[in-house]
């Protein structure tokens, strides 16, 4: 009896300690999610003054919506284009910045600075870089006689232009994680490998890379979620155009919510995005995670 009481007391204490964060979690995470789920089963657009329940109509409509499929495929290409490259580049830059004897600080800063610049500013910079005729890139392309390439105005170029910019923006950020990861690897391991005469490539393949896997895992997840979260540049650069060629899921949600004022559909799209992100993260965590060495 007394034991039970004591246990209960401990539990109450624990719950009380958790309460503040729990309230915030409920208020700002679970409640909105729940509201979004509910709203996604309602018709709530300009044509319906009072939202009413419409079952899975929003989801059905979504499946028939060409733009939805377009932004979804775009987003997958965008993720496929940005994640591996920016992660690989970050690793390369980290290895280099870690090795460089002279100007270490300068190299790190140079690599890192795109991260510090806000996305809106980055978008403006690159808008200029991509400007046909007299943009910075056009000057370079001029040497190949292609100065009039319309990077953002052409459906087949615009996605590449976006991917390139985002890689430039993100790689430096991921490099920081890799630098931290590299610092964690004991110098002894490299010396031991040197005693055996292992080549730089072997050392990388068999020592550095496997030991950086936790970082790679973490960075890939961040990069992947970012590829769904980063849409600021679209507002500045293309508004998703031409003809949705650069449109992404989150920007489409924004358009649906704040331009079409279709809250039901926007909620349904949000749910799809959240489920998608969770699914990918789950695969990464419960599948790949087992193969990774953690210290």
């Amino acid at each position: 009896m007394g034991e039970l009481r004591a246990k209960w007391k401990v539990n109450v204490y624990a719950w009380l300690l958790l309460l503040p964060s729990l309230i915030f979690l409920l208020l700002f995470t679970f409640y909105p999610v729940w509201q979004t789920v509910i709203l996604s089963f309602h018709q709530a657009d300009l044509g319906s003054p009072e939202p009413f329940f419409n079952g899975i109509d929003n989801y059905k409509q979504m499946l028939e919506d060409d733009v939805f499929w377009k932004v979804l495929t775009n987003n997958l290409w965008f993720a496929l284009g940005t994640v591996p490259t920016s992660v690989a580049l970050a690793l390369g830059m980290a290895l280099f910045a870690n090795k460089a004897l002279r100007g270490k600080g300068f190299i790190r800063t140079a690599y890192f600075y795109p991260t510090v610049v806000p996305m809106i500013a980055v978008a403006n910079i690159w808008l200029f870089i991509y400007t046909p005729e007299y943009g910075a890139l056009s000057h370079v392309m001029d040497w190949f006689g292609k100065g009039d390439m319309n990077w953002l105005g052409d459906q087949s170029n615009v996605m590449w232009a976006m991917i390139f910019m985002v890689i430039w923006k993100e790689a430096g950020y991921f490099m920081i994680f890799y630098l931290a990861g590299l610092q964690n690897i004991s110098q002894e391991l490299y010396e031991s490998a040197a005693m055996e005469g292992a080549s730089a490539w072997t050392v990388f393949r068999r020592v550095t890379f496997p030991l950086l896997m936790p970082t790679t895992m973490f960075v890939s997840i961040i990069a992947f979620t970012n590829s769904f979260k980063l849409v600021d540049h679209l507002v500045i650069m293309t508004k998703g155009g031409p003809d949705n060629a650069s449109n992404l899921l989150l920007y489409y949600i924004y358009e649906t919510a704040f331009s079409f004022w279709d809250q039901g559909m926007a909620s349904a799209l949000t749910i799809v995005m959240v489920v998608l992100l969770l699914a990918v993260a789950a695969v990464q965590f419960f599948g790949l995670d087992k193969k990774i060495h953690y210290n």
Binding site: E188, E191, S192, A193, M195, E196, R206, V207, L211, M213
Partner: peptide, 26 residues
């Protein structure tokens, strides 16, 4: 051959692979 203060064992490799690492390299 050298034995390091903190043994320099590769934490992600098994004992066997740790021991054979040098031989595999060579």
């Amino acid at each position: 051959s050298m034995v390091f203060q903190n043994y320099a064992l590769y934490p992600h490799l098994t004992v066997k692979d740790n021991i054979l690492f040098g031989l595999q390299v060579r």
